[in-house]
């Protein structure tokens, strides 16, 4: 995914620059896409200089693997320190389910295993103690 991500990151930078809104939109591959919900636990850009806030990652794909969901994304911000992933279902609000080093671009979510459930994800990048806005959202179901 590394080369693909480099390409997608370039595209994302262009797209985000054009839109001026790093918290909405997305590729929609593998599920629904839409605006990030910043009302739940939203810290993006808050509590600091907005200009210093890193750009949000871009969720690329959810792939059912081994009865769970594998989440793939592109890190838009160079030297992002950590990537925080949140997940929600129809009955459970967004909660953080993983954090990875900032140069990692995927996570196998072993908590998403109910084949009758739709899981929705969003991500943020943290750099210098400042969180980005939320990424786009993607939804999918394990198989």
């Amino acid at each position: 995914m590394t080369w693909l991500n480099t390409f997608l990151a370039s595209c994302a930078v262009v797209a985000l620059s054009a839109c001026g809104d790093s918290g909405s939109g997305g590729s929609g591959v593998g599920g629904d896409s839409g605006g990030g919900d910043t009302s739940i636990g939203g810290m993006g850009g808050m509590g600091g200089d907005a200009a210093a806030a890193p750009s949000a990652p871009v969720l690329d794909m959810l792939e059912p693997v081994h009865g769970a969901l594998h989440v793939y994304w592109t890190n838009v911000t160079a030297d992002c320190e950590t990537v925080h992933g949140e997940r929600k279902t129809a009955t459970v609000a967004y909660e953080e389910v993983f954090s990875e080093p900032g140069n990692v671009d995927n996570k196998a979510d072993q908590g998403a295993t109910d084949t009758a459930e739709t899981y929705t994800y969003r991500l943020r990048c943290m750099k210098g103690g400042v969180m980005s806005d939320y990424s786009n959202e993607l939804s999918g179901m394990p198989e």
Partner: peptide
């Protein structure tokens, strides 16, 4: 080889690298 920007080798075992085998950049 998977290199960090400072030239060090990225040995963090991310899930894709475990599932598919590590591919370098």
């Amino acid at each position: 080889i998977r290199l960090n920007s400072d030239g060090s080798i990225d040995e963090y075992p991310d899930d894709e690298g475990v599932t598919n085998g590590r591919e370098g950049n």
